[in-house]
């Protein structure tokens, strides 16, 4: 386990994980929520996509086969999905999912670009860069402990942040030659 001397937020935590993966030459890095929402049994499915189907980034989605419920939280998810669709022409059903698997290419990207966060706009960036992103149906539980870092004010800030980033910054990403 790597522990940071200063708490510097979720993004920093993910980035240090990516640096660790690069340092020890890992093939796949997995982003996984520790609050009981995610089920480790589905990780195999994500890893399979990368190993067997040549996918670069596999996302565990709740809504590939199932329908999205109409709640406030899912409204935000829908808006982000629409923005992603507009900018990349790809359908990402569960953009805010925190269960993702990245291959070497994606790990390298995380290490070389400090502005990449474990958020939907990074998915847009990666699609734009030509990485193959695929969603895999998984089940998620309600969190068992801990609280979401989003409250009313923060979720508005989050949405504005994501929309600006997806529509005006990430959408102008050029494909790497």
């Amino acid at each position: 386990m790597v522990s940071l001397p200063i708490n510097y937020g979720l993004t920093s935590g993910i980035q240090v994980g990516m640096k660790y993966a690069k340092k020890y030459d890992y093939d796949i890095a997995i982003q996984f929520d520790g609050d009981g929402q995610h089920d480790a049994r589905y990780l195999k499915k994500l890893v399979d996509e990368i190993e067997k189907n040549g996918i670069d980034v596999a996302i565990g989605s709740r809504f590939v086969e199932e329908k999205k419920p109409f709640t406030m939280r899912m409204l935000g998810s829908r808006v982000i999905s629409t923005a992603i669709k507009l900018t990349t022409w790809k359908k990402i059903t569960d953009p805010t999912s925190g269960m993702r698997a990245f291959n070497k290419k994606a790990i390298d990207m995380f290490c070389s670009n400090a502005s990449l966060t474990p958020e939907p706009d990074t998915v847009v960036f990666m699609i734009k860069r030509g990485l193959k992103v695929k969603e895999v149906q998984v089940q998620m539980r309600d969190r068992e402990f801990g609280e979401s870092y989003l409250n009313a004010f923060k979720s508005i800030k989050y949405m504005v942040n994501m929309m600006l980033s997806i529509l005006f910054i990430r959408s102008f990403t050029r494909k790497e030659k």
Binding site: P5, Y8, Y20
Partner: peptide, 14 residues
């Protein structure tokens, strides 16, 4: 810069 230092220290300690 602080973030990178933070990462460096963490990886080094590990």
């Amino acid at each position: 810069k602080i973030k990178n230092l933070n990462h460096y220290i963490a990886l080094k300690e590990n």
